[in-house]
Amino acid sequence: LGPKYVGLWDFKSRTDEELSFRAGDVFHVARKEEQWWWATLLDEAGGAVAQGYVPHNYLAERE
Rank of each mutant, 00 (worst) to 15 (best):
L1K: 12
G2K: 12
G2L: 14
G2P: 12
G2R: 12
P3L: 11
P3Q: 11
P3T: 12
K4L: 15
K4Q: 13
K4T: 14
K4F: 15
Y5L: 02
Y5G: 01
Y5V: 00
Y5D: 00
Y5K: 00
Y5I: 00
Y5C: 06
V6C: 13
V6G: 02
V6N: 03
V6I: 12
V6P: 02
V6L: 06
V6A: 03
V6W: 04
G7Y: 05
G7W: 05
G7T: 03
G7I: 07
G7L: 08
L8P: 02
L8K: 09
L8A: 03
L8R: 07
L8Q: 05
W9N: 07
W9T: 07
W9L: 10
W9Q: 10
W9F: 13
D10P: 08
D10E: 07
F11I: 01
F11T: 03
F11K: 02
K12N: 14
K12I: 15
K12D: 14
K12A: 12
K12T: 15
S13Q: 08
S13W: 05
S13N: 07
S13E: 04
S13C: 08
S13R: 08
S13G: 15
S13D: 03
R14W: 08
R14N: 14
R14Q: 13
T15S: 13
T15W: 09
T15G: 13
D16V: 10
D16T: 11
D16M: 10
D16Y: 08
D16G: 11
D16K: 12
E17W: 13
E17C: 15
E17G: 12
E18L: 10
E18C: 12
E18P: 00
E18V: 13
E18Y: 12
E18F: 12
E18I: 09
E18R: 06
E18N: 07
L19A: 00
L19Q: 00
L19Y: 04
S20W: 05
S20P: 03
S20H: 02
S20K: 03
S20D: 07
S20E: 05
F21V: 04
F21W: 02
F21S: 00
F21D: 00
F21R: 00
F21Y: 01
R22S: 12
R22G: 05
R22V: 10
R22W: 07
R22E: 07
R22N: 11
A23T: 06
A23H: 06
A23M: 08
A23D: 02
A23E: 07
G24E: 03
G24P: 01
G24Y: 02
G24F: 00
D25P: 01
D25N: 07
D25F: 06
D25H: 03
V26Q: 10
V26Y: 10
V26R: 06
V26L: 14
V26N: 07
V26H: 07
F27W: 03
F27L: 11
F27T: 01
F27G: 00
F27K: 00
F27M: 09
F27S: 01
H28N: 09
H28S: 10
V29W: 04
V29M: 01
V29P: 01
V29T: 01
V29D: 01
V29N: 02
V29A: 02
A30P: 04
A30G: 12
A30Y: 11
A30N: 15
A30H: 15
A30F: 11
R31E: 06
R31K: 10
R31G: 05
K32R: 09
K32E: 04
K32P: 05
K32V: 06
E33Y: 11
E33R: 06
E33S: 09
E33Q: 08
E33A: 09
E33T: 09
E34N: 12
E34Y: 09
Q35W: 14
Q35E: 14
Q35A: 12
Q35S: 11
Q35G: 13
W36I: 06
W36F: 11
W36M: 13
W36V: 08
W36C: 07
W37G: 00
W37V: 05
W37S: 01
W37M: 03
W37L: 05
W37N: 00
W38F: 13
W38T: 01
A39L: 03
A39D: 00
A39I: 04
A39P: 01
A39H: 00
T40G: 01
T40W: 11
T40K: 05
T40L: 11
T40N: 04
T40C: 13
L41E: 00
L41Y: 02
L41W: 02
L41D: 00
L41P: 00
L42N: 00
L42Y: 06
L42F: 06
L42E: 03
L42H: 02
L42K: 00
D43H: 02
D43A: 03
D43Q: 04
D43Y: 05
E44N: 11
E44R: 08
E44T: 09
E44D: 12
E44Y: 09
A45E: 13
A45K: 13
A45V: 10
A45I: 08
A45D: 14
A45T: 13
G46A: 05
G46I: 08
G46L: 05
G46W: 05
G47I: 13
G47D: 13
G47Q: 14
G47W: 10
G47K: 15
G47A: 14
G47S: 12
A48V: 13
A48N: 08
V49F: 05
V49A: 07
V49W: 04
V49D: 02
V49L: 10
V49H: 04
V49M: 08
V49G: 04
A50H: 05
A50W: 06
Q51C: 11
Q51G: 05
Q51L: 05
Q51I: 07
G52D: 00
G52Y: 02
G52K: 03
G52R: 01
G52F: 06
Y53V: 03
Y53W: 15
Y53P: 01
V54K: 01
V54Q: 01
V54T: 00
V54C: 12
V54Y: 03
P55I: 09
P55M: 04
P55K: 05
P55C: 09
P55A: 03
P55N: 05
P55V: 05
P55Y: 06
H56L: 08
H56Q: 11
H56V: 10
H56W: 13
H56D: 07
H56P: 14
N57W: 14
N57R: 07
Y58I: 04
Y58Q: 04
Y58E: 01
Y58D: 03
Y58A: 11
L59F: 04
L59A: 01
L59N: 01
A60C: 12
A60H: 10
A60L: 10
A60Y: 09
A60W: 08
E61G: 06
E61C: 08
E61R: 11
R62M: 15
R62C: 15
R62N: 11
R62P: 10
R62W: 15
E63P: 13
E63R: 11
E63A: 12
E63G: 12
E63I: 13
E63S: 13
